[in-house]
Simulated assay, not measured.
Amino acid sequence: MTDPITAVLLRAAELTASGRARKAVELLGPVVAAHPHHAEAWGRLAAARLDAGDAGGALDAATRALALGVDAAWAHRVAALALSELGRHGEAAVAAREAVRAKPGEWRCQVTLAEVLAAAPEGDDAEAAGAARRAGELAPDEPRPYEVLGDIALRGGDRGTAEWAYRKALRLDPDADHARRNLARLTRQRSRRLSWRFPGRPSGRFSRRLPRGLSRRRGAPAAPTGAPPLGAERVLWRLLVRLAGVLAAGTLLLVLAGQSASGRWLGWGGIALLAVLAAVTVRTVGRVPRGGLRPVARLVRRRPMLALGTALLGAALLVTAGWTVAVVAGMATVQPLVPAGLCALLAMAVSVPGRLVLRHRRARGPAG
């Protein structure tokens, strides 16, 4: 049976990973008050406070956790990040080096050292870049070291290395928003320089000089070969949530209206509902880059929850559309809308947690 404190710590870790760090702080406050010598509780509180923006509180909690015997490398990492946010860059570098010294083979320690050195106004970019590269060697499948390396190179004016690092991060994680934004900014800057150097010829043969992997549409990065387009999965989840919500609410309203309205007016209501669903689809899918919908079938096959939600939503849409046609033709019942609404609700029940998992699947654990 799970210990009550352990259950609270696990719940706090889930809240922190899902972006609700303040809730985690509120949950952990009574625990550390009742058990002031519980090292892991102080460690979780330090991570939650750091994510909540309370750098001073995070530093105090990490110091307390370290004194109580929590993992030294982890405590030094949290302390280094907190000190960096407080502007105490020298102390942050010392704490980050202590973390590396405690666990030289841990990639997160190397990334922390690179981050705090890069954040210092007069930081050593060479040492920071070296730490980021070592982190990439220790964890070749993690995008974060390459994002940090790209930031360091960008600050030093090395645009070639920055672009390479951001593209590498995106190949590892197509949803790495930080790398995508910075790469898009670099592409826009490159386009402006070309336009200035070659006035009157902003496109054409000069646009073909953009590096491979960069889209020519709005400066957005293109998807790596064989991978779904950047943001396509996120857009699909968002579309599923919106369509399921609209369809569930619309069918409920039509069922209620069917208690008094005639079949003709219900038919107009069904047509209006289908028009709203079409408008939502067009608006949401418009955010996918050109050609980005081609691998959707492959993407859905790789995500069972996405496939289930899509199937439920498709069934609800088919029933609703068939009912609308039947009502326009003279049928006067709303019975088919009940299973359609239930399917829409089930699709929403699947899509909401699925979208949250996608949003936070790369979130860093509080003690990891």
Score class of each variant (00 low, 15 high):
Glu122Trp: 05
Glu122Met: 08
Ile152Met: 08
Ala128Glu: 10
Ala131Ile: 11
Asp125Ile: 07
Ala126Lys: 06
Asp151Ile: 06
Ala119Met: 04
Gly123Ser: 01
Ala128Thr: 05
Asp141Phe: 03
Glu115Arg: 13
Asp125Val: 08
Pro140Arg: 13
Ala118Leu: 02
Ala135Trp: 02
Leu149Ser: 05
Gly150Arg: 01
Ala126Val: 13
Ala131Tyr: 11
Ala128Arg: 04
Asp141Val: 11
Ala135Thr: 11
Gly150His: 00
Pro121Phe: 04
Gly123Gln: 02
Glu147Arg: 06
Ala135Lys: 05
Glu115Gln: 14
Gly150Ser: 07
Leu113Ile: 04
Gly136Gln: 12
Glu122Ala: 13
Ala128Tyr: 07
Gly123Thr: 02
Asp124Tyr: 01
Asp151Gly: 06
Pro143Trp: 04
Arg133Gln: 15
Gly150Thr: 04
Pro143Phe: 05
Glu147Tyr: 07
Glu142Tyr: 03
Leu138Glu: 05
Pro140Asp: 13
Glu142Arg: 11
Ala119Cys: 04
Leu113Asp: 08
Tyr146Pro: 10
Tyr146Met: 14
Glu137Ala: 15
Leu117Met: 06
Ala126Gly: 09
Glu127Met: 12
Asp141Ile: 08
Arg134Asn: 12
Ala120Pro: 03
Ala128Trp: 02
Glu127Cys: 10
Ala135Tyr: 07
Arg144Met: 10
Asp141Leu: 12
Glu142Ile: 01
Leu138Asn: 09
Asp125His: 05
Ala139Cys: 10
Tyr146Leu: 15
Asp151Thr: 07
Gly130Glu: 12
Leu138Val: 03
Arg133Asp: 15
Val116Cys: 02
Pro140Leu: 10
Ala129Glu: 14
Gly136Arg: 09
Asp141Cys: 10
Glu115Leu: 14
Glu127Ala: 13
Glu137Met: 13
Ala128Phe: 02
Glu142Ser: 12
Tyr146Phe: 14
Arg133Ser: 14
Asp151Lys: 02
Tyr146Ile: 09
Pro145Asp: 00
Leu113Gln: 05
Ala139Asn: 04
Asp141Met: 06
Arg133Trp: 15
Glu137Trp: 12
Ala119Arg: 11
Asp151Met: 08
Ala128Gln: 03
Leu138Lys: 05
Leu117His: 01
Arg144Trp: 13
Ala119Pro: 00
Leu138Phe: 04
Pro143Ala: 00
Pro145Ser: 03
Ala120Phe: 03
Pro145Gly: 05
Ala119Lys: 05
Glu122Gln: 11
Gly136Phe: 11
